[in-house]
Design a protein around this nucleic acid. Sequence first.
DNA 1: CCAACCATGTAAGCTGTTACATGATTGA
DNA 2: TCAATCATGTAACAGCTTACATGGTTGG
Lengths: 190, 190
Amino acid sequence: MAGTMLGDRERPTTLGLALLGLVNAGPRSGYALRMVFENTPIGRFSSSPGSIYPALKKLESMRFIEPRPSTGTGKAFHLTERGRHVLLEWLSRPVTVDEYDREPDVAFLRFAFLDAANDAVLTVRYLESFESAVKESLAGLRAFLRSDEGEALTLLGSLAVQHGVSARKAALRWVRHALDMVAMAGSIQR
Amino acid sequence: MAGTMLGDRERPTTLGLALLGLVNAGPRSGYALRMVFENTPIGRFSSSPGSIYPALKKLESMRFIEPRPSTGTGKAFHLTERGRHVLLEWLSRPVTVDEYDREPDVAFLRFAFLDAANDAVLTVRYLESFESAVKESLAGLRAFLRSDEGEALTLLGSLAVQHGVSARKAALRWVRHALDMVAMAGSIQR
DNA sequence: CCAACCATGTAAGCTGTTACATGATTGA
DNA sequence: TCAATCATGTAACAGCTTACATGGTTGG
């Protein structure tokens, strides 16, 4: 029975974690998960079967999800306790400048999944780390503009950087708005 | 002499094209190119030697760049005619919704490189395709919001989508601003 | 009965990264 | 002379994609 220990140390990939987030929001079949990637603006990942099914198999072998018979014909994947645990660990990570700069879409995806955790404190902490990351990123951009390389930018180059600056400003406004909305939802609930 | 035909069909990867863009802006050594990734907000790629040097070797074997002795000690890579050709082909591609949605940073990077082409017509065409792509992407997001999946969004999910909407609106404003700036620069030059 | 959709899978390969090594040059 | 920076490289592999296959179910 050595097989039951297989993959004990392994952590899921980003695609795997995204699948965990979706399964957590509601048990689904592989096909249903594909359709989410196909029909929603998650964007980052391909909806092709060659992407999703191998990832699901791996998650199952790691015992983060398990198939259970569902309504009518098919089976749906459910999150296991272990699966819920790694998902929450992922969602609990603070947003770093590096994440925001290199894969901002993941930072937003994690935020969207955070809903299922239903933990206002966690959500506020997440948004605060988000705000810090964006501020730091913005400061970095401005420092670059003052550097030698920044001063030497061509017209189109500086326009591209300008977009970066305004995108970060917009993200900061969004964070504050999101914090307001979360606070409102919290006060309504009690 | 069969070796001279090697890699004739191959097209560079995104990293390769980014390197071509940088080399086109000014001949540089591998190390200097690494430092660009390290010190500028290009973001997308790692500045580690294991990324850049193999990519440069491949570009050289494809005869898109060639090393030439430069000032003092080292050598610098220069773009070949073939290299300039593939770079321009890359920069001339219109921005598609898919590119904007999946890797917006590449769309901005290509724009910044377009400066070296020094072709106002090309630049305007590029920005117009950019605008169409963003408009289409925005329309897609709004359609999603009106769909079943969109109506069923959780609070945090809809906040995440809201950010997508305002990011796209900001991008549209940026495109118009960029078009203005390009027009101004054009009229000044004559 | 046939097209469209539901549903799942494998094989091959591209792209890029991390981790590991190595040595030259130069300024304090 | 010794640390920092310049400079280049390889090996292993992670992570995902495209292309290819296959078969069941269902509604018109």
